[in-house]
Amino acid sequence: MNFHDRHLLRLRVNGEDHSLSDLDPRVTLLDLLRERLHLTGTKKGCNFGECGACTVHLDGRRVNACMILAVSCEGREVTTIEGLADGDALHPVQQAFIDHDGFQCGFCTPGQVMSAAALIEEGHTGSDAEIREWMSGNLCRCSAYPQIVEAVRAAAGRASQ
């Protein structure tokens, strides 16, 4: 087994291939996105997996970017909030957050939106209670929770229950 203190990392972020040399293995995916790739939409709220502000999609699954060593993402595909929209056309979840006033200060919003987009793919929109439970990994101190549930429900195309 070959141990190194600096690594070459190749990964795909928002459809773009990146190759980073001389990567310190201590760098988390979150800090890689923010400090190296300057993709600052993904937020650092706690850095301990306790708030969900850093939620991104890793190979299509929602995860906390602060809990991942970047070096372990070799060959993987990452989608961040910057890569969710299709060009200028907002993702339905993004539009629904605007339509339903699903944010205030906006700091947790990228994480909320990424979580919501994944949740809909996962199919956890059977009821408002199910949405609430499966959105509980994203803290919102402005407490836009009811509006977030409305936005997710609308984006999932489900009528009010």
Partner: peptide, 21 residues
């Protein structure tokens, strides 16, 4: 009226203090 800051806030373009270099 819907929030005009929605566009930047749902796309990650809204910049907070730690987002500057």
């Amino acid at each position: 009226v819907a929030r005009p800051d929605g566009g930047v806030k749902v796309t990650g373009r809204a910049r907070y203090a730690a987002d500057y270099f």
